[in-house]
Amino acid sequence: MLTWKRAGALLALLLGAALWLFGSPSPEERLAAQAAALEARLAAGEAQLEPFELLELGHNPGLRLELLDLREENEFNLFHILDARRTTLPELATPAFASGLPRDAVVVLVSNGEGRAREGWKLLSAQRVPRVYLLAGGIHGWLQAFGFQARLGLTRGDCPLDDCRRYTFEAALGDRHPESDPGVQSLAGREFTRKVKLQASARRKAGSCG
């Protein structure tokens, strides 16, 4: 006989089975399902970190920063921000990459402009990676913000994702250019809106049956 208790048990079992079979969408399916919401968050500027905030975070010894550079290898070798590591959009789309990122890290994506970084932000956000941001204006924004406009000026025609290199360096020195780390003194007198909410390490020992 089907009592309320048995009906509840059956419903829970069916829901559990449905979640097992259909409840783990692929990164692409998650991205497709959330595309509009993620675009809205990007349009609202929720994800874009100003270069000044990124520099400040990079000099915060109590913070784990994962700076992911999505540019081409030759561009990365030419110049990159201190402590950045290079990766690619296809890598970001793999669940293993997303689950391998430390849960307590602040993840910041970098590209020449914002094109690839926006795509990467959507991929990681769709996979539920916490605290993912992108560098506003990309490397171009970084050079502009810290007064290295002389590096900018290169123009190119065909430009996928509106994300082509517009800067030049004489040698491929990676992060050994002075532009890689303008230093915290560059932040003196700068006013900027912080997006990353930092809090003192709180020890939460709570846990109760109620």
């Binding site: 829970a12 559990g16 089975a17 979640l19 097992w20 079979l21 409840g23 783990s24």
Partner: peptide, 9 residues
Amino acid sequence: PGLVAFGVV
């Protein structure tokens, strides 16, 4: 997570 949910149920 779906498989864990089913197992816990």
